[in-house]
Amino acid sequence: MIDFEHEYIVIFVKCVDTSLRFFVDMLGFSMYEHIEIAGRGCPILQMQSGHYIMLIEKETLECETVTLLTDDCLRDYHAFKKQGIEQLGKPEYTDAGLTISFYDPSGNKIMLLEARDYTDA
């Protein structure tokens, strides 16, 4: 049952099991819930920052860029580097905050953003 109190970021993937291993074992996301939509298993994962993502399997997949929010980009960058995430980009400062990017097994570009308030600067 979907919890409508939470906001989910949906990521379309080629294979749920492969993606699940990547997001849980490599990135350290935790399994929050496993729901079914139209007979397909759609795991909901919780990030360290408390945000949620939902994985949905799709046969014909167009890879896209997905932006996920984090509360500490450098902590995550360090953890991902330790895990040996391939094609992990170096942290970059943008107008919106600090970002890192990498690719998931389905070829989606995952951009992790630590949103920062620069209005005082």
Binding site: L74, H78, K82, E114, R116, Y118, D120, A121
Partner: peptide, 27 residues
């Protein structure tokens, strides 16, 4: 303010929580 505020505050939080990972602190 700006980015250095975030870097110093994250670092402060980690050391207060007893994080001992030297590579993380060096980052």
């Amino acid at each position: 303010n700006g980015d250095i505020k975030y870097s110093l505050m994250h670092l402060s939080r980690h050391v207060d929580n007893g994080v001992a990972d030297q590579l993380l602190l060096s980052e």
